[in-house]
Structure formats: structure tokens, C-alpha cells
Design a binder for these strands. Structure first.
Lengths: 241, 241
DNA sequence: CTACCAGATTGATAAATGTCAATATTTTAT
DNA sequence: ATAAAATATTGACATTTATCAATCTGGTAG
């Protein structure tokens, strides 16, 4: 009944999948599960591979599964009327994604799309329901995760509604460096349009602000590669609005 | 051990307080609690009265309590740099308010302020922790409530970032009628500044849009009293952006 | 009743942001 | 390698929104 047994259930994935998905030292909401519960979770889950650009979950479809991203980078998009879209946040390795409507209307409230190649697992929502009922520590962890994500998104959106474009671009660059890529020259793999969609401005406006920052010596840019040269300047611009 | 016993614990409030706060036919996340659990929740809670304009909870203070609004209207504010503020939503009777940071950093992420006179109860956060641990149905209800509120706020903010002012004002008017006051000529009790803060625009701009709507015969306005004459027009403007 | 005060309204103007079209650059397919 | 397509950049201009100052309004203290 050790982890070995659990791993065998999923025949598709060899490396860090299944039980060990969530057993790599990173904090995880699954840490609190017993072996049996983990086995329940992992049984019948499906392992899926997405190419860059593919849609993982589509807004307004039925939310029968949650998704665990195992490898790669994905973006969470709120789609509005017309082709307006707002990228709410990026998702890197080892996150659980519910699509927003879990426990309520079972409708997804955002679209999730692969930025790079993405490997992930689909788990039945029902399993999550079961675990919330049977394991209060798990419910607690899920509450924490939800709250943390929502506060982050909220702060982000409040910034977008209250700051001028340079402040928003500063916030985005700092977010990318400090919360997503965790290193300094970083390769976003994101198009200008996608970066603009993270700040709620047009691509042209975004490019102009980026150019200003380049001319001011605050950053250097090479394709999708960004190097922050003067982080303090960005902090200042962010605070000033 | 009936409800009477529980009610006696709180000596301050006579009418629909304590156990009966949440026993009036409205759905409530407390419905799933046993009598004993309700008693635990209600013991040591404090009943507080606020005058219009007073701050109930202040952003960035420690989140040692949650608040149940029993009567009156309150607003939830995200305070930004400077005096910038964004009113995220209004809160009417019988809602539980956590201030946002529950279970995470125990810091409040918004300010809650009374619009009219407000009566509410303060409950120790610890009690909520205990109940989440001991009653999985309660954890579930709390998850649902959180998700519902967050999706609503998110949709609202996405609208604000993607629509021009007339669309945002339309959304606000429809929100006030359909989700807060639930009747048609309705008295908001909110100043022009507060209404503007709900749409992330300046007071002057808000007044101008309101005037346009008046001239177009879509609404009539008398002080803080608003009458929606042509809801379809508002829906149209909302959709169009 | 009168003078005051806060909130509401209006107008003129400036600033921020978006739109559209032209051009440059990079990527992809052949 | 070369052509075609997609993405990025730039510029001129239009639109949206904010800012600032002046005026109006209704309520209230004296």
C-alpha cells in the first residue's frame, strides 16, 4: 500500500506524476491526505498533454473536473464581450485549478490556456467533493488556497483600475520576475498582445510604455526576453500610480 | 437546550439576534450547524451598532473576528495608494464578512464601512476555525460562499476594466436594482462620490453619464433616489461596452 | 429667516488611452 | 535560402476620461 502501488494506477506517466506529483517538497494542498485518500484522488485521473496555445479549460463549459498542472506555463483568462479578454494570472508548475465555479454552479468562470507545452492531470470534481467532506484539513487547505488566489487577483485588478499605464506595466514586470519566473533575465514566452492583456491595455499602448522603460534604462528587452535593470525604479513607478 | 437557551447568552439584543439571526428562512451557511455548534459560535460574540459612515473593519488590521451584518447596508472598500478607493460591493442583511484574509495571513484585505445604520455581531475567527475542522458541511458552505462572492467581484472588476463609462454605470444601476434593493424606484443612500467609487471613475464623470441617461429617458433621479425607466436600454448599453 | 456649508452640477481644458494605417521585424513554410 | 505569414513597432489622430475651477442646490445652525 506504499506510494509505489499508487503510482502504478496511472500507466501513462513515469516521472513525477500521480502521488508523487505532490510529493516534491513544495507545499501542496494534498499534503494532508492519507495514502488511501491520495489513492482515491489519483484513481481514474487522466494525464493530458497540451501544446502551446491550446485551450485546457473553456469558460462557460461544465466544470466536471479540476486540473493539476504538472509542467509548463498556463494563463487564466476572463473572457468578456467581443474578443475582449483579460489575463488574470499565470500558472506555473504544481497548481490545482478549479476554473472558478467549483461548489457553486459547476460552470467554469475562466478559460485556461497553455502558454508553453503543458502536462497536467484531470481529476473528477466529485473526488474533491468527497475529500472535502471526509477530511476537514483538506477543506481547510482548499479554503486557504482559494482565499490566497482570490486576494491576489483582487489586488491585481484593483491596481489595474487605479493606476495609469506605467504603474500597471511596472506591476506586471515585477510580478513576472518575483512570482512567476523567479530569476532576472527571464523569458516570458508571452506575446506583446498577451502581456497587454495582463494589464488591460491595448498592445500598442503596452509597447509604448515598454519602449519608454527601455529608453530610461530601466529594462532591456530582446524578443520575449526581459531583463530588469533597475527594480527600484519599477517599484517607484508602481507606487506613484 | 432549545434555541431559547442560546438566545439568552447574548444579553444585548432582543429581536432576531444570535441563533435566530440565521433562522429566518434565508439560506445561511450556519444552517448546517447543530444546536451545540451554534451555541459555540454565539457564545462570547459581541453585538455592535454603527452609525452611517462609521468604519466597521479597517483594511490592514488584524483579522481576529468575522462580522455578521444583521441590519442595514454596508460597503466593502479596497483602499489603494493615496485616497484612491474602489467599492467592491455592497452588503445587505444577513451576510458573513471575513475581510478577505481569513485562514491566510489573518490580515484584512478590505475596509468595511456602514452606509446606513448597521447592526452586526462580531465573532472570533477562532470559532470559525473550530467549526471548519469539526463540521465538513460547514467547511463546504464556507467554500461555496467564498467562491460565489469572489466570482461576483471578479466579474464586476473584469467589467470595469473592459467597458467604457456608460457600460459601467449601466452595470451599476442594474446591480443596485436587481441584487441589492430588489425594487424599482430605490433609494441608494449613497453619495455621488460613492457611486462613482463603485465604477472606478471620478464623481464628475459619473454625474455626466447619469445626466445623459436622464436626458435619454432611461432613468429618473431625485437625490439619492433612482428610478429605472428603461431597463432594456441599460442591458443594451451594458452589453455594447 | 438668513447665512453658511457640504454635496451636486456644469463648463472649459488637459491628459491618458485607444484606433487605424503604414512599416519593420521575426517566424514559418516551402 | 526565399517567400509568405504572423507579430512587433511606429506615427498621426480620435476618443475617452480626468482635472480644475466656478456655480448651483438643499439642508441646517443660529
Amino acid at each position: 500500500m506504499g506510494p509505489r502501488r499508487i503510482e502504478e494506477v496511472c500507466t501513462k506517466c513515469k516521472d513525477r506524476c500521480c502521488a508523487r506529483c505532490f510529493d516534491d517538497g513544495e507545499e501542496s494542498i494534498f499534503d494532508c491526505l492519507t495514502k488511501d485518500e491520495l489513492e482515491l484522488l489519483v484513481k481514474e485521473k487522466r494525464h493530458v498533454h497540451f501544446k502551446a496555445g491550446e485551450t485546457i479549460l473553456k469558460q462557460n463549459t461544465s466544470a466536471s473536473h479540476v486540473v493539476c498542472v504538472k509542467r509548463g506555463l498556463a494563463k487564466i483568462i476572463a473572457e468578456g464581450n467581443g474578443d475582449k479578454k483579460l489575463i488574470l494570472r499565470l500558472v506555473a508548475t504544481h497548481s490545482i485549478l478549479t476554473g472558478g465555479g467549483l461548489f457553486i454552479d459547476d460552470i467554469r468562470h475562466f478559460t485556461i490556456q497553455a502558454v508553453t507545452e503543458v502536462e497536467c492531470c484531470f481529476i473528477d470534481s466529485d473526488k474533491i467533493y468527497e475529500l472535502v467532506s471526509s477530511n476537514s484539513q483538506f477543506a481547510f487547505e482548499l479554503l486557504k488556497l482559494n482565499n490566497r488566489q482570490n486576494i491576489q487577483m483582487l489586488n491585481n485588478l484593483v491596481g489595474i483600475t487605479q493606476k495609469y499605464m506605467p504603474g500597471r506595466v511596472s506591476d506586471l514586470l515585477l510580478y513576472l520576475k518575483n512570482e512567476i519566473f523567479l530569476c532576472n533575465p527571464f523569458d516570458t514566452r508571452l506575446s506583446r498582445q498577451e502581456l497587454a492583456d495582463m494589464t488591460s491595455m491595448t498592445m500598442e499602448s503596452f509597447i509604448r510604455i515598454l519602449k519608454e522603460f527601455k529608453l530610461a534604462g530601466i529594462i532591456s528587452v530582446e524578443g520575449t526576453n526581459i531583463h530588469i535593470l533597475d527594480e527600484e525604479a519599477l517599484n517607484l513607478i508602481s507606487r506613484k500610480g
